[in-house]
Design a protein around this nucleic acid. Structure first.
Lengths: 128, 128
DNA sequence: CGTAGTCGATTACATACGTAAACGATGGAG
DNA sequence: CTCCATCGTTTACGTATGTAATCGACTACG
């Protein structure tokens, strides 16, 4: 009997950094991923390899052999990831309603005038 | 020499459930908190006590003695918590820009017509 | 051919988190 | 006074996460 299609395991913050590299360009070798993130996060190549393995286990990343090494590519779309994470937050903190989140961002001045303009534009589109 | 005002430690998801109870009404005893959350999350009283201790350690909750037991109250405002968590998400996933988050919620149909109306109203206020 | 570098895989170890049982003090019922 | 219920505290233990060192295989250089 097939497992109940395993709900995607969560991607941790460190793992996300690796995913971002792969979302920008893929496939990449572990080396190349490291070149994209190791300096920034002050990681060793080993750390990147560990994170890649964990992501493969979580089925978030696919491998394809290339000679003696592997090339890694994302198996989940960035926009899906953003979607689930955003919704998780909205559910957890705002009872699933997006408006209160927006109100909060507005109050805490997390909204730049640019943001406001963009959101207005989006609203206009939604209404059309 | 005073410690560099310790940046507030993170509140975990389980801990948040306890905070929610205290935000709704406080001060409460551990018992009372349990009455609010134990059924829902299927927790034992012990679990609630552990979470309360951790929250006290994290300075997120204050205690005041009441006979042989303690009364617990939040030390951080819910709106502050919402603010930091929201901002953390926006930073982590959307490079600090709120508009893309909004766009994402819109695309993934996480916005109800009510949400949209509310946000419109908020925007109008922001512009005034 | 032997050896050094490089790969992925395995193992390691500290901290955080979820969940709770065990423990020691103490106050109230008999 | 004695014993039990109840507090908060301490200890426990499994999994997740951050961050790597180590290991065994293999390849390219000398």
């Amino acid at each position: 009997m097939a497992e109940k299609s395993d709900q995607p395991e969560r991607i941790s913050e460190a793992e996300q950094a690796v995913m971002e590299a792969l979302w920008q360009r893929s496939p990449l070798t572990a080396q190349e991923v490291c070149e994209h993130v190791c300096a920034e996060r002050d990681w060793s190549l080993n750390t990147v390899k560990t994170l890649l393995s964990r992501l493969v286990t979580k089925q978030a990343v696919a491998t394809q052999p290339d000679g003696k090494r592997f090339l890694y590519s994302p198996r989940i779309a960035r926009s899906d990831y953003l979607g689930t994470e955003s919704r998780r937050l909205v559910d957890r903190l705002f009872g699933g309603r997006a408006a209160p989140l927006f109100a909060h961002l507005a109050q805490s001045e997390a909204l730049t005038p640019d943001d406001i303009a963009e959101i207005e534009a989006l609203l206009k589109e939604l209404k059309s």
